[in-house]
C-alpha cells in the first residue's frame, strides 16, 4: 500500500500542522504553508486534520498509486490529472491502482496538498511529520521527495476497488467543499499593527496602506520578499533579537519588507511593522512571485473573530465529511 514518486516536483515535502514545543532547541514549527488547505484535504478523505500530507509547489510531481485509495487535492490549482483525466480540487476521489497523478499546468496559487485516506506512514520526529529541511529531519529523511521514493499509507479501512466501475480509473465522490469564503479577494491581506509600526514615518505608514506590493521571485517557504515603496523609520532602530511568528512583516535594513512564512526562524532582529492575521495566512501562502498584494489594517478582535469563524466552519466540515464517508461504506 503505497505511492511512488516517478518524477519529483520543484519542492515536494511531507508536512503536517507543524512541530511545536521545541523552540528552546532552536527548532522552528515549520509545517504546511497553507494549513487550511492541508486540513481540508485530510478531512475530505476522512483523516484527522493532523495527518501527514504531501505539499507541492509548481512544477508538481508525477505520482504513481500502487494501490486503490481515496485521495483529495486542495490548495493551489496545478490542473491535476490522473492518466490524463482532469481531477477536481477540494473533492474526495477514489483512484485505481497503477494510475499516475500529474500536474501539467499552473492555473492559480502556490502550494497544493495531496491527502491519502488513512494518512502517509512516515515516522514522526519530535511529535510531528513535518519535514524540517534545515535540521535534515522529519518527513522522508528530512529532505524533499525524490525519484523512486515509496511512501506507504497507513491502514485502509475501506475497500475502494468495489466503488470503481470496471471501465473507470477514478470516481469523484459526490461532495465538495466551498472554499470561496477563505480565499475571497486573494490579493487583499488583513494585518494587525506590529510593535514597531509606530517607528515608521507617517509617509511610510501612508504608503504601506495605500500602495500595492509585489511578491519577489526569491520568495520561499521561509519568507516572501515584497517589493514596493521603500519603508523608512523616523530614527535608526537598534534591536536585539526578539520573537516573530508566521505572517510577521519585518522591515529589512534596505527598506524592503519580508513576510515570514511557515519555515521562519522563531526570533529576528528587525522591526516588526505588522502581522498578517491567522485567517488570511492561507491567502498569503497562495500568493505567487509577481502577484500583487494590498495590506489592510484591522483590529485584533476582528482578526480573532474571523479566525474563530473559519475554524468553526472547518469543524462543521470535518463532521460532515465523516458522516458522508460513513454513509458510503455502510
Amino acid at each position: 500500500m503505497s505511492l511512488s514518486i516517478i518524477k519529483p516536483g520543484l519542492l515536494d515535502t511531507v508536512q503536517d500542522l507543524g512541530r511545536y514545543g521545541y523552540s528552546h532547541w532552536g527548532i522552528n514549527p515549520g509545517g504546511a504553508m497553507d494549513v487550511y488547505a492541508a486540513k481540508v484535504a485530510n478531512m475530505l478523505v476522512g483523516n484527522c486534520p493532523t495527518e501527514a500530507v504531501i505539499e507541492m509547489h509548481f512544477p508538481g510531481p508525477q505520482i504513481l498509486f500502487n494501490q486503490n485509495t481515496l485521495i483529495a487535492i486542495a490548495g493551489a490549482d496545478f490542473s491535476p490529472c490522473l492518466n490524463e483525466e482532469p481531477l477536481p480540487l477540494w473533492t474526495p476521489i477514489v483512484v485505481r491502482r497503477n494510475t499516475v497523478l500529474q500536474f501539467p499546468q499552473l492555473k492559480k496559487g502556490a502550494v497544493a496538498y495531496l491527502a491519502i485516506h488513512g494518512g502517509i506512514a512516515v515516522d514522526k520526529w519530535l511529535g510531528s511529520y513535518s519535514t524540517n529541511l534545515k535540521a535534515g529531519a522529519g518527513g522522508v529523511s528530512g529532505r524533499q521527495l525524490k525519484k523512486g521514493d515509496d511512501l506507504c499509507f497507513k491502514d485502509n479501512r475501506i475497500y475502494f476497488a468495489g466503488m470503481l466501475r470496471e471501465q473507470d480509473n477514478l470516481m469523484p465522490l459526490q461532495w465538495r467543499v466551498n472554499v470561496r469564503k477563505t480565499y475571497k479577494h486573494p490579493h487583499e491581506i488583513f494585518i494587525i499593527k506590529g510593535n514597531e509600526w509606530e517607528y515608521l514615518t507617517g509617509t511610510s505608514q501612508y504608503d504601506f496602506l495605500q500602495n500595492d506590493f509585489i511578491v519577489h521571485p526569491s520568495s520561499d517557504r521561509m519568507g516572501y520578499q515584497l517589493r514596493g515603496n521603500m519603508m523608512q523609520t523616523s530614527h535608526p532602530i537598534e534591536m536585539v533579537s526578539c520573537g516573530v511568528s508566521y505572517g510577521t512583516l519585518q522591515l529589512l535594513p534596505d527598506g524592503h519588507l519580508i513576510a515570514l512564512m511557515a519555515d521562519h526562524q522563531t526570533t529576528g532582529g528587525y522591526p516588526r511593522i505588522g502581522n498578517v492575521i491567522a485567517a488570511h495566512l492561507p491567502k498569503l501562502a497562495q500568493l505567487r512571485p509577481s502577484d500583487n498584494v494590498q495590506f489592510k489594517l484591522v483590529d485584533l478582535d476582528v482578526a480573532e473573530r474571523m479566525f474563530l469563524s473559519q475554524q468553526n466552519d472547518l469543524h462543521i466540515l470535518e463532521r460532515a465529511c465523516r458522516e458522508h464517508l460513513n454513509a458510503l461504506v455502510c
Binding site: G21, Y22, H24, S241, C242, G243
Partner: peptide, 15 residues
Amino acid sequence: DIIVAYSSLTVYYDP
C-alpha cells in the same frame, strides 16, 4: 510554544 529571546518572551497559542 514559548520562545525565549534576550529580553523578551513570546508565546505561540492556538486561539
